[in-house]
Write a protein that binds this DNA or RNA. Sequence first.
DNA 1: AGCCATTTACTGTTCGAACAAGTACATCCC
DNA 2: GGGATGTACTTGTTCGAACAGTAAATGGCT
Lengths: 173, 173
Amino acid sequence: MSQPENPDARRPTTADTTGPANVRMPDSVEAGAMNHAIFRVARLHRMLAGQLLRRVGLHPSQELVMMQLWDRGPQRQTDLVRFLGSDAATMTRTIRRLENAGFVRRRPSTTDKRVTIVEPTAASNALRNEVEQVWMDLETSVTEGMTPAQQAEAIEVLDLIEKSLARATSQDI
Amino acid sequence: MSQPENPDARRPTTADTTGPANVRMPDSVEAGAMNHAIFRVARLHRMLAGQLLRRVGLHPSQELVMMQLWDRGPQRQTDLVRFLGSDAATMTRTIRRLENAGFVRRRPSTTDKRVTIVEPTAASNALRNEVEQVWMDLETSVTEGMTPAQQAEAIEVLDLIEKSLARATSQDI
DNA sequence: AGCCATTTACTGTTCGAACAAGTACATCCC
DNA sequence: GGGATGTACTTGTTCGAACAGTAAATGGCT
């Protein structure tokens, strides 16, 4: 299919790269390559994280909350929201589920009656090693196909993308 | 920065690269740098996409369905599932919402009574340019802080990560 | 022909993500 | 002091993501 031989002279096949943004893309193949790449990586990473977390009985994002609590100790929900980058409403429910699961306890702050302090329970310590193992497995899954140099490059690239996105998000255009 | 002159012979400062995987990480700073980087990029990208899509009245992921339909024409839900990489249950509901919004129509296949064919409506064509504009804005937001060389590098790195993740996901470990 | 695994789509359910709206408390400023 | 403003958290709601279970149709295999 797709005519293997055509004598036509100009073919923008492999790399025109200098996409002038006005000329129509040759095919619809490459309109937004970066978006597609990010979407696919994000989806696969989320899927794999979900599969690994399932074994330890956590849902995606709950592990981030627990890791933050284990690392930094008891703190306000707002602090967790800032860390997760999520919103307060989501955090309220996530915390409630973690509380019901017995991994987290909540107590009101004495100094500021608006805030509730969230802290990891002793029972949660049993989880900690498992979650850290999951985290390392996930990291390994990403990096095992890459040379150390490629890994370093990847981090740089991701940081660069993050900066771009952060700027665009704050601007809100 | 980074001490232009130092007489010391071996310094693993910038690129020791050969990360031995056994030695403990010096701080807890760098345990899962790749994971964190991917999470942050994924979150920001999703957030920005959501903000942009909101203006055209679509929810995240609906635009991917519509783009697939515009590009490839009427097709079965299973094909859309394969494209989105999501699952059939999610697709059923997404399609229903797009149908209620008037962007999509469903008709039963005559040859296979199990399948329903999904096709974009004429009304959806009004959306198409807007969605493509959103898609380009999103792409621009990611790439505008990067040189063309960095963009090419980013695509390579993301493809590499995707391959690693795809392998890990299929293995299911 | 008849059985059976597979495919296709749907529903039920739980959970995170996000927006909106509302309550309780805190702080600032007049 | 008292109103205006801001912060911390909660609830309501819609939507995607994912797992489980179901039902119908298909196709292969004996």
